[in-house]
Each structure stands twice: as C-alpha cells, then as structure tokens.
C-alpha cells in the first residue's frame, strides 16, 4: 500500500485536528442541508404535478427514495471507515464508522416507515414481503447489531474494533441477502409490485428528488460530525487538548 494513504489519514486522524475540522464544517453542512431540504420539499409538494396513476400519494418518494439511498450509502461509508480503522488502527476511522451506524439506522427506519405508509394506498397493505422491503429490514437488523455490539463492550475501542469487523461481515452479507430474497420472492410470489417502474420520470419530479438527495447527504455529514465531536470529547476527556478547549471556553465565557 502506498505510503501517502496512512500519512494523509494520520494527519486528519489526529483527534484535535478532526475535532476542529468537523466543527468548522458542521454548521455549513447543516445549514445547507436545511435550505436544500426546504427547497426540495417545496418543489416536491407544490411544484411537481400529481402522478396520473398514483395521485398525490406518490409524493412520499421525495422522502422515501433519498432515505433508501442514504441507508445504503451510509453503510458503504461505514464499511470503508471500518476497514481503514481495522487495518491502520486509526481511531478517527473507528469513531466515524461507529457514529455512522445510528444515522444509517435512522434513515433505514425512515425508509421502512415511509415505504409502508406508501404501500397502504398503493398495494392496500402496510407490509408486503417484497424483495426490496425485506432486504431493507435485514439491513436495519445489521445496523442494530452493529450498534448493539459496539455498546456491549466495556472498552470502547475494543467494542469499536469488534463492531467494525461486523460491519465488514455485513458488507459481504448484504448482497447475498438481496440475492437470496429475490430468489425466494420469485419462488413464492408471481411478480411483485414495482415501486419505480421503467416509466421515465418527469423533470419537475426529478429535480426535487435530486435536491433532496443532496440535502440528506449534507445532513448525514452534519449529524455524523456532531456525533463524532461528542464521542471524541467523551473518549479523550483526560487529554490535554480537551482540557485546553474547556479552559479556553471557560475563559471566554467569563
């Protein structure tokens, strides 16, 4: 492996450096996420036309689809961070992986809830054993397993390493689950209802969708950075840089 990778990561991997970096980025990411989400919701709820088949009910996709996408995207980001953390033993990577899990689990949960809310008017049922819904449910269990494993250790770093390992096991597992559920579905049901058919999507529906995707990504960054900062403060509370930080804060407050 090239030397510059660990070198570069080591520089950003220093907790105080990352703490300051995250603190600088977070408000911008959060502000931009809120603005974009507002724009996307306006576009989705008021500008985009009603669907000729599904009426107004389809508008839930402006929440559902970006969440579904984020549930997978965050898993990918988490897996990369977990790998980096395990191989190069970089603390920040472990923290990023572990703090990504609750955010990813939240997006997965939102995907499942909005999917079932959408399913009621469309399919006439809250839940169907559709391949994608089932895979998403399994993904939620993987997220919960990672969070549970992380918190079941006395030693945070050891917990982070074990849970990172589980993240990688899950990364191998998710495609296998998806494949097997697909196979199972064709065995047990005819054809399932397609959520997004091959029908191409109207431009006035597309741009709010893409805007919302950007907004969820920025929200993830903002949320992750806030969580990582909190985790770093807690786990490094005995360190000089945290003391300095607190002293500085007290000094400026007085």
């Amino acid at each position: 492996m090239a030397n510059w990778v660990p070198l570069w990561l080591h520089r950003l991997g220093s907790p105080p450096v990352f703490y300051r970096f995250a603190g600088a980025v977070r408000p911008w990411a959060l502000g931009l996420a809120l603005v974009l989400a507002g724009v996307a919701l306006y576009g989705g709820l008021f500008v985009a036309p009603a669907d000729y088949q599904q009426g107004d009910a389809y508008r839930i996709i402006f929440v559902h689809v970006p969440s579904a996408w984020m549930s997978l995207f965050i898993y990918g980001a988490m897996a990369v961070a977990a790998f980096v953390g395990l191989v190069w033993r970089i603390k920040i990577a472990e923290v990023v992986a572990m703090e990504s899990a609750p955010v990813g689990a939240a997006f997965t949960f939102i995907t499942l809830v909005t999917g079932s809310l959408w399913g009621k008017p469309m399919w006439g049922t809250w839940w169907t054993w559709d391949a994608r819904l089932t895979s998403e449910l399994v993904l939620l269990f993987i997220y919960l397993g990672v969070i549970g494993l992380y918190h079941s250790f006395e030693d945070r770093r050891q917990g982070a390493r074990a849970a990172s390992f589980l993240v990688l096991v899950g990364a191998v597992n998710v495609p296998i689950v998806h494949f097997s559920v697909n196979w199972w579905n064709t065995l047990h049901q005819g054809s399932t209802v397609r959520l997004l058919g091959p029908s191409h999507i109207e431009a006035s529906m597309l741009w709010p969708l893409l805007t919302m995707m950007a907004a969820t990504k920025l929200y993830y960054i903002a949320s992750l950075f806030a969580r990582v900062r909190a985790d770093l403060i807690a786990s490094e509370s005995g360190k000089g840089w945290v003391r300095e930080l607190l002293a500085h804060r007290d000094g400026s407050g007085a």
């Binding site: 269990f141 006395e154 597992n173």
Partner: peptide
C-alpha cells in the same frame, strides 16, 4: 468470537445472526 470479549448477551447474538442466516 466477536461477542466473546463483551458482556454476556444471548439476545445480541440472535440479533447479529439473523441477517446472516436469512439466506
């Protein structure tokens, strides 16, 4: 093996095994 260093927890094992045993 992953839970071996953690506090005792059978439920956690079930939660972790479920996604793996679905296929």
């Amino acid at each position: 093996a992953l839970t071996a260093g953690s506090r005792r927890s059978g439920m956690l094992l079930a939660l972790m095994l479920l996604p793996l045993c679905v296929p």
